[in-house]
Structure formats: C-alpha cells, structure tokens
Amino acid sequence: MDLQAVVAGFKGAAPLPGLADAWHWSPVRGIEFAGALSADGQRLLQFGGRDSYDHELAVATLEFAREWEKGIFDRNPFLGALEGFRAPAGRRPFDVVVGVAPEVHRFYRVELPELTPFVRLTFPAYACEFSGGESLDEAETRYRMLHLNHLNHLGREPLPFLKMRFANTRTGGRSTNSGRGFTGPQRLVEEFGRLEGGPGSFAEFENRHGRVWRVEWHGAWYIAELDAQDGAPRETVLDELVEFAMERLRD
C-alpha cells in the first residue's frame, strides 16, 4: 500500500512541520490527527487528540515512536509501552509512549479497512497504566478504558493499571468474573468503604507489577500482601488504606 498517497488523500491533510514523512489532518472540528511513516516506511504511526491536540506533543510522540518502535512492542505485541519519553515543557508528565496494534484498535475498519493492518496508534501515557503482560483480550479492554475516558484528552491524569476482586457480606455485592478484573481507582475506594460492617467481606487489588493486596473487614480494616514473605494482616483505617493503595497503584 502507498501510505503516503493514502494519507495525502485525507481531508485537510498537510505536511507536519518539524517531522519528515509526517502529516496532520482533521476530519471534523475538534478531532485532529498526526501521522508519520515508520522508520522502514511500512506502517503509519498515528497520534490523535480530541479538543486537546498539541502540535509539539504530537511531534515528540511520533518522533519517539518512530525511533523506538521495536522497543515499544518488544514486551507486548498488542499494547506496548516504552519508558524514557519526556513530554515537552509545560505538558503533563507523560513518561512512556504506547503503541496499539491493529488487532486491538481496528481503526479505519469501516471507511478504509485495507488501511487498518498498516496502522499503529501511538500516544503519550504513564508507566503505571500498563503491565506489559496484557493478553489480547486484556489489551482490548484496557484500550477501551483509556480511549473512552482519557486517551484523546492530552491533559489527562493517570488511570493506573488496576485489577480488583471483591465480595461483600453486608451489601451482597461481589465480582462477577472468576478472577480479578480491570476497574478504576474510584471503584476500589468505594468498595473499601463498603466493607465496613460486613464481617468476612474483602477486596483484593493488583497493580501493574502483579503485586496483590487483600483487604478484609473484621471489626476494622485489615490489609495483607498476598504471596509476600511477611503477609500477616495488619489493622489500618480507611484514610491510610486509600493512601496506601493509591501509592501502590502509582508505583
């Protein structure tokens, strides 16, 4: 496929200042894209922003992605992330560039499906958001979470990698999946609060490093790290528990 010719045909496409073999286009008001050919010219690396497009950040992201594309996907061929990125001054402290494979993003599947296999989406992100071990199904779930809530908003806060499992004897609420499933930090905090008054209730949470903690209610909140040498539960209070969990998620 002649990627240069395809991109040149996009509505409003023009060369991207500051980066060779790269373009900028905007299909509708408020949504803007930038794309660059990969180093070997075989793929389109694409960056996007919704009501928050940033030219300098786009150039920096695409430049990093082009130079380090192999490293981005070394650990995970579906949803890869590589540390070492530094966003331009005045931006959020993004510290990784992420690459999303066609099997996950399925971009252009309706209007130009023949282009989809040649496109890798790239965006700046935070290291705490990815484990590197996501399966294809997990990569799809994680991409949807970021895309729907954060991905195109370049002033966003981190959405840390978080898996949770819980059961509450007081409310009757419990996880519907057999293991820990992805969720957001706010949901975890809510479940911590709901444990109060429910003997035997628990909430487990896992961070991107695969470390898991279990919180139980036995007249007070108790927390222990699973599979740790010193995994004995210790009593805590809700504010300290929330602060501890948020720190572990940002590790």
Rank of each mutant, 00 (worst) to 15 (best):
N152T: 11
L238R: 13
L112M: 13
R156N: 12
G48Q: 13
L146Y: 05
P77E: 13
V237F: 13
D74W: 15
L16R: 07
I72E: 02
H24V: 15
A13E: 08
L162K: 04
L146C: 05
R92S: 14
R106T: 11
R109Q: 15
L44R: 01
G210Y: 09
E204Y: 03
E138M: 05
G155A: 12
A139P: 03
P102F: 10
T171F: 10
W217Q: 05
K70P: 00
A39R: 01
N76Q: 11
Q186K: 09
F161H: 13
D251G: 12
L19A: 04
R211V: 08
F182S: 07
A81W: 06
V242I: 15
S135D: 07
S52N: 06
A220W: 03
R170K: 14
L148V: 11
A5V: 12
F123Q: 03
D54R: 14
H105I: 06
G173H: 08
E206N: 11
R106H: 14
A89G: 06
F202T: 02
A224N: 09
M164I: 08
E138I: 00
V100R: 01
N177Q: 11
G35P: 02
V100C: 10
T236K: 01
A13G: 09
L249A: 03
V28C: 04
M164T: 10
A139S: 14
H24R: 14
D95H: 07
Y126D: 03
S52C: 10
A60T: 00
W221Q: 04
L188Y: 08
F202M: 07
W221I: 00
G49T: 13
G12S: 10
H147N: 12
R170W: 04
G12Q: 10
L19C: 10
Q42P: 02
A65N: 02
R29S: 14
E196Q: 13
V189G: 05
Y53W: 12
R50G: 06
G172L: 04
P113A: 03
G193M: 07
F130T: 03
A5S: 15
L159R: 06
V59P: 00
L188V: 09
G173T: 00
E134M: 04
G30I: 04
A127K: 08
P27Q: 14
E243R: 15
V98F: 05
T236Q: 00
G197I: 00
G99C: 10
P17G: 11
L121G: 04
G231F: 12
M164Y: 01
G181S: 14
R170T: 01
M164R: 09
L226M: 15
S135K: 03
D95Y: 11
W23G: 01
E134P: 10
E196T: 10
S38E: 04
E190I: 00
R66W: 04
A139G: 07
E247H: 09
V242Q: 11
R165V: 00
S52E: 11
A13P: 01
E216Q: 08
S178R: 09
G12I: 06
V97G: 02
S52Q: 12
V7H: 09
S38K: 00
